[in-house]
Design a protein around this nucleic acid. Structure first.
Lengths: 178, 178
DNA sequence: GTCTATAGGATGATAGAC
DNA sequence: GTCTATCATCCTATAGAC
């Protein structure tokens, strides 16, 4: 019999996102996803050609988001730090599910060539903000950007208003030369 | 024939540590480990009763280290921040292989109950340092501690002297109330 | 201490009926 | 769109020979 819902495809996306984010890509089997939706694995393959395609589709919004962020962020200096940090925090919060999945299983997302390439390009932004490649300078950017990322991940679905300003202020302090 | 090395057990530990750190626990099979050492999977089972036991043994030094860190860190206030951050950075650096493995596959290490319990207790240290549980205060500790952790992970085997002081200074600035 | 051989199960993916 | 049935491949782990 046909299923009660008209939008199975959307349900698959939602369940997969939740399980990938919670348990990691490799640790999540298609059987688990199918069971949660009360359909068979074979049904999944009607909607998505492969497990990796499913992942790629879930990660696409963040890819686009990063793409735009990096496009804007070229050719900027230390003066732009507050605005850049704020945009990065917002980006992380919008894409927090993908981010949690990445934390749970970076190896999986690393195989998505697009995303890997983008994350490498974030290092260019680091350099632009601290104006150097030396480890002693890079750490300031790592703590600022990485710290914001960690906040989003650890705060879960807490509203951004509840901690965003404090996090930005702390990240900005970390970024300032000592 | 007996193998060229007398200390296969130690070699297994080393190879496993490297592969777990690089590819994650679940993504690393015993076959991969065995092939690298040119022995069979069965030989691994002579030295370690199970894959999980192997993991537990590798994580033990960090468990002990964290145990001691948390023991010392109870009942301290914001004044102790510089010393606590420094000890935390050193701890992360000593155990950077385990830390990288944890990043690659937190789900695996989460099954080691000991380690999970300890990581939860780090939240107590957070509270002690910022003196509050409110999200707007917690983020300062998250950025400071998390940022230091991120530095160690991203710097790989770079000597600590090359970036440690700068990282500590930045983390300390992030921790100060706003 | 290390081997061969294999049990027993899960996984991603496909073919073809309805 | 969803199913049953099945495939090839991988996994952890064990038994027993040498």
């Amino acid at each position: 019999m046909p299923r009660r819902s008209t939008d199975t495809r959307e349900e698959i996306r939602a369940v997969a996102m939740e399980l990938f984010a919670r348990n990691g890509y490799a640790q999540t089997s298609l059987r688990q996803i199918a069971e949660r939706l009360d359909i068979t694995k074979a049904a999944l393959y009607y909607h998505f050609p492969s497990k990796e395609d499913l992942l790629a589709e879930l990660a696409q919004p963040m890819v686009d988001d990063l793409e735009e962020f990096l496009g804007r962020a070229r050719d900027l200096g230390p003066d732009d730090a507050p605005a850049v940090l704020e945009r990065y925090l917002a980006l992380c919060h919008r894409n927090r599910s993908v981010l949690q999945g990445m934390l749970r299983d970076p190896a999986a997302l690393a195989r998505l060539d697009v995303l890997t390439a983008l994350l490498y390009r974030r290092l260019d932004v680091d350099r632009a903000l601290v104006g150097s490649d030396r480890p002693a300078d890079r750490v300031r950017a790592i703590i600022a950007f990485g710290g914001l990322q960690d906040c989003v991940i650890l705060m879960g679905d807490e509203p951004l208003e509840r901690y965003g300003d404090a996090a930005l202020a702390a990240a900005l302090r970390a970024l300032q030369p000592g």
